[in-house]
Write a protein that binds this DNA or RNA. Structure first.
Lengths: 194, 194
DNA sequence: CTACTTATGTACCAATCAGTACACAATAGA
DNA sequence: TCTATTGTGTACTGATTGGTACATAAGTAG
């Protein structure tokens, strides 16, 4: 039944591969580099990931998505002021270290690399952004009903607007000379949530 | 002095290469594909572009940038209402055909592909976005002074905000189910210019 | 015509790509 | 200990990568 034991956990090596994919993109990250980063050999890799590099990348997208959404959902669930928590999500961009900002948004990056092809990566990345938009929508919707938001704008439109800004900041943060300039911009952009 | 005549014009083949680079990105576009698209052979190519694929890509960035900025500047120069012209630039995203929208923004795409490396491509692409931002700034600044804009927000902040939205729409347009949804979003986002 | 200059097409190159084949190692159950 | 099962490491593969070498073509100048 159970032969030689695995020397790695799938979740762990997927997370390590994610780091490299995020930094270099799918095409530029070679399988050899990935294997080195994951700390496993070809034999183990192609046994665990029969689909090779593509399967790995799909699982990386799903893994990063799950982690990020879980973190946000958890923070919201234990938050006193959900709108403020949402705002803090954006504010964190202005406070992030340079290395983090240079990597931008993994999902926006993936869409940029693949949206003109027919690979399934675009759909997976788009699905994440859609889920993020849905979270925005629900927080805004609830806050409006509770009178915590004075804006009369439709929650769906506001959520789509926030996603646009999120993706836009995913580019801006990569080329911003100093993160300080980002913070004042973000603070201004968050005025739509009042 | 003058030997065998060239069978191509540099500007023309650069424009043809731009189409492929824009659709597939730098890494995914192979030199052979590029040569086929440009309609020239390796001999001619490496004589004209001693830096190879990299030099070609730099010239593509510069070429696309120059064209887009020139078009916008020309439209603005002959416009009665510059703010409205700016708005129309954004509105055109909602009206563009699917094939166009799937390509997104070439400069955002390039920044996404390279911002974690030290290649000069990021700087070239960032420079374009900065120039675009400057145009936004000047139109807003002038309109505010002429009383055509009631917003009291600082022109520099508004311009940075518009660039964020521009880059965000560069992602949204790639994954939008139908362009119709984009138009209502864009119209809402343009309310900052009133 | 000859000499010179520049452009073109093709054959070729080493390096790298993602992926496979397979001998061998390590466990569990009998 | 023997067998079955699963995992690992390495050698190898064919294809493709970006790029070079070079013979030849197509012009101009004398």
């Amino acid at each position: 039944m159970s032969g030689r034991p695995k020397i790695f956990e799938e979740e762990v090596v997927i997370a390590k591969a994610a780091e490299l994919f995020w930094r270099k993109g799918f095409e530029a990250a070679s399988t050899e580099e990935l294997l080195a980063a994951m700390g496993i050999g070809k034999g183990s890799f192609y046994l665990a990931f029969k689909g090779g590099k593509s399967e790995l990348f799909e699982k990386v997208i799903e893994g990063v998505s799950r982690k990020e959404l879980h973190l946000l959902n958890h923070t919201l669930a234990t938050s006193q002021n959900k709108v403020e928590t949402l705002k803090d999500l954006f504010r964190s961009i202005g406070l992030a270290p340079k290395e983090r900002n240079q990597k931008g948004c993994f999902f926006g990056q993936t869409i940029a690399e693949f949206s003109s092809t027919d690979l399934p990566f675009t759909d997976l990345a788009a699905r994440h952004l859609l889920q993020l938009e849905k979270i925005f929508y629900e927080v805004i919707s609830e806050a409006q009903q509770d009178g915590m938001l004075s804006t009369k704008e439709a929650p769906a439109l506001l959520a789509a607007h926030l996603i646009t800004i999120w993706n836009g900041l995913g580019i801006s943060r990569r080329i911003a000379p100093q993160p300080n300039s980002l913070s004042t911009l973000i603070e201004m952009q968050l005025k739509v949530l009042q």
